[in-house]
Design a protein around this nucleic acid. Structure first.
Lengths: 205, 205
DNA sequence: GAATCGCCCCATATTAATTCGGGTTGCGGC
DNA sequence: GCCGCAACCCGAATTAATATGGGGCGATTC
């Protein structure tokens, strides 16, 4: 038997950290070498000591998990698996695109977590049944917004009026209405009052 | 030493369930007698066997934790403590009003959970530092909406226009505007586009 | 029982937002 | 080059939403 794989846990819930430590405590293949509750500290940790596998929560208090992933992946020979509480499809897609090797839900049985670690280290991609079911449901054509549309969506999310947005962008109010109509069309909603909600669902904000 | 206190864990994250079981496994005062991941099953469980203490997550997949709390509290001599991931102030207030005896964040150190159990069973109210800090920040007077205002808020959340709402309620469009202005005032927002967001924050929907 | 308060309603006048028709630019394909 | 296409912009006309001022109704208080 080779030496154990070093695991770093990144999750802001202490009880989850503890549960994971306990899960791996009796393993002869894995050793937990650290637990972090903030995304900002991850990069420094993995630079300072050898880590083979990172178990990353996407929902951290300081930064989005995907940003942490983007920061650390590729920096050295390291495998990252995502352990997430909520199932945000777009975010999971991003994580996989960025190089996450597995995605497991916190609602999954515990042996799925170990299975994900095994598979990820073997070079496979592991998606737990929970997650893959959710992923399949929404096989959505990705919504691409232009920069103008994105800017206006952003101001809409702040709750600003068309007039205010027009002033900020130095364009006429009817032009703002035009872009909003485009947003309605692309986001497939019939009412302005649903645009921001829908954009949040699609994680466009 | 008296007999151990029976604990029921209600949380949809398996890893949290496991962490809590482990936390109490070595205790001589507590015994975990069950773990549930759905709110709908809680009432049947506590009817079927003696439970002294329920550790309840507010964020369950099927129903809001506060509804579970409302259902089980008072049904017998049982203490409920809330263990929550996110800190939704209004929901925590509701939980306390409904009779929860302690509130702990999942981000708190583990000994706070045990402290909460001890305090709750001793008849005290325990609020962890994390939570009490968040609670203090927003010491909001509770927002009371009239039934008309609530109805209109509901339609707003569906994304309907003033005209549609007016038609549904058989009132004139300016009357709808009037109620919306009242909502803006009561919810303390400057833009209509923020009303639904704010209402969600305050869990008024 | 009069004053007060909150809620509900509306018509009118005003302001905001949308639709419509029309124009520009830039870019990839025929 | 020229066509089509998508994004971007606007003015004028239309429609939607708001503020304003006012009336009625029921409950509470003095």
């Amino acid at each position: 038997m080779m030496t154990k794989h070093n695991i770093l846990i990144v999750d802001d819930h202490r009880i989850t950290q503890s549960g994971l430590r306990y899960l791996f405590a009796s393993s002869d293949r894995y050793a937990v070498v650290g637990t972090l509750d903030r995304g900002a500290t991850v990069n420094a940790f993995v630079q300072s000591q050898p880590v083979d596998l990172v178990i990353l929560d996407l929902n951290l208090p300081d930064v989005r998990g995907v940003n942490v992933l983007a920061e650390i992946v590729g920096s050295r020979d390291m495998t990252v698996i995502v352990l997430t509480g909520e199932t945000h499809v777009a975010e999971i897609h991003s994580a996989l695109k960025l190089g996450a090797r597995a995605v497991v839900s916190k609602g999954d049985p515990l042996d799925h977590i170990v299975a994900a670690c095994d598979a990820a280290l073997a070079g496979e991609i592991y998606i737990s049944p929970h997650i893959s079911e959710a992923l399949g449901k929404f096989d959505q054509p990705p919504v691409a917004l232009s920069s103008r549309q994105m800017a206006i969506l952003h101001y809409l999310a702040q709750g600003e009026t068309n007039k205010e947005i027009a002033y900020r962008l130095s364009i006429a109010p009817p032009t703002v209405s035009f872009h909003i109509a485009e947003l309605r069309r692309k986001l497939d909603v019939s009412h302005n009052r649903k645009i921001v909600e829908r954009a949040n669902e699609l994680k466009l904000l």
